[in-house]
Computed example of a mutant assay.
Amino acid sequence: MDITEWLNLALRWLHLITGIAWIGSSFYFVWLDNHLTPPKQGDASGELWSVHGGGFYHAQKYMVAPAQMPDDLHWFKWEAYFTWVSGFSLLTLVYYVGARSFLIDTQKLALEPWQAIGIGLGAIALGWVVYDRMCRSALGRNNLAMGVVWYGFLVGAAYGLNQVFSARGAYLHIGAMVGTVMAANVFMIIIPGQRKVVDALIAGQAPDPALGARGKQRSLHNNYMTLPVLFIMISHHYPMTFGADRPWLVLALVSALGVAVRHVFNLRHKGKSSPSLFAAIVALIVATTGYVAWEKSGRAQAKGPDLTYADVQPIFAKHCLSCHAEHPVAMPAPPLGVMLDSAAHAGAMAPRIQKVAVDAQVMPLGNMTNMTPQERAKLGAWIAGGAKP
């Protein structure tokens, strides 16, 4: 039994479940905030009536705190904590334990695993330090200005990490940086602030309004960072994103799109709309897909009508057949059933070869066999010519 694969599945499933719980509660409370109306009676700052699941709900919000502590108070925190713990565990299992296969790209930088792991952990820690300092500075008093600067920092980090790691590894570390910031906001700012408010109420003191304002700001930031993180979580399934010549630019465009979409929803919750924002979303979609298509057309392989399987078989033998053969020597069975040990097998897999070995260049894993650009171009030419046997 392959314990590593089962552990991978368990962590990925846990990450998905807890992520849904965290994001769901986050989206709900932002929606709730944007739909509150002044109460008809009482000292709450806002209220909302809603219906769900056959019942009616009456939610009230106190801007700082109620006059008296309720007997039972629910804290929304474990969803965030377990999302981060499961995500970091998955990052460790896949990209740190398997650093040579998934994180290191020897064509960019011949790192030892400990060096790559150190850079990755340093980037994650640096992300929180930079973000937190921004929030505490004068810049933090203007959410729009800070958002622009923070976005620029992340784009720069994506560019820098792409010079060091595999494109997938760079993407996942940007996701880890942002995810860590979001979880740290809950663990280090929002929950401690709420605890101080509760302690003040118990002691019969007036809570500090700044604590609630600070927590609300960090919660708002988390709301806007959610969709870019979700994109990164699924991006490894789509090589046309991280496999671009400038994957950091694709990430920047899609992340900007995610932020814009989130802002549209936030405006709609308030009963507002912005035609210019809709136009910006359309422009971002066109820019992203257009850029990827332009890149692909620019590096399209010239057809090689004279190339046959015999011409590319040495490439497969050198870089692929230890795993992708009917009886591989590196593992019990060919991964995903992909076999390249005959003209028929390889021809049937030509589109997949194009996607992972020519376009995205994620195979061989970690490029441990040092497949050259010339060899990739030859494979592309063979495929462009019809993948002839």
Rank of each mutant, 00 (worst) to 15 (best):
L257R: 06
K272H: 15
S276F: 13
V264E: 09
L253F: 07
H263Q: 12
L251C: 08
R268L: 12
A260Q: 09
L277V: 06
S274N: 15
L249R: 01
H269V: 04
A256C: 14
A260W: 06
H269F: 15
P247G: 09
F278Y: 15
V254Y: 05
K270Q: 11
V250Q: 00
F265H: 11
F278A: 09
W248I: 14
S276W: 13
P275H: 06
L257T: 08
R268G: 01
A260R: 00
V250G: 02
F265Q: 13
L251T: 10
G271F: 04
S274I: 05
V261I: 13
S255K: 02
A256D: 04
N266R: 09
S276Y: 07
S274E: 07
A260Y: 05
L251H: 03
S274H: 10
L277S: 03
G271W: 03
W248C: 10
S273K: 13
R246A: 10
A256K: 02
S255I: 02
R262V: 07
L267C: 07
F278P: 07
P247T: 10
R262H: 05
L277R: 05
V261H: 01
S273F: 07
R268A: 13
W248T: 13
K272Q: 14
K272I: 04
P275V: 06
D245G: 14
P275F: 07
K272P: 00
S273W: 06
R268K: 14
S273M: 11
A256S: 13
P247F: 09
N266L: 11
L249P: 00
V254T: 12
S255P: 10
L257N: 08
V259E: 03
V259H: 03
L251K: 03
S276L: 13
L249M: 08
V254C: 01
P247I: 07
P247Q: 06
K272W: 03
A256F: 04
W248H: 10
L277N: 03
S276I: 12
L253I: 10
F278C: 07
L257Y: 11
V264H: 09
W248Q: 07
F278I: 08
V261G: 02
V261C: 04
W248D: 15
H263N: 11
K272V: 08
L249W: 01
G258M: 12
L251F: 14
A252Q: 09
A252T: 02
L253V: 05
P247E: 14
K270Y: 03
G258E: 14
S276V: 14
G271S: 08
V250A: 08
V264S: 11
R262N: 06
L249F: 07
L257Q: 13
K272A: 13
G271R: 03
A256Q: 06
R262Q: 08
P247C: 09
L251S: 03
F265C: 06
S255E: 01
F278E: 12
L277M: 05
V259L: 04
S273A: 12
D245S: 08
P275T: 05
N266D: 15
S273Q: 12
R246T: 11
H269C: 12
A260N: 02
L251M: 15
K270N: 01
P247N: 14
H263W: 10
G271Q: 03
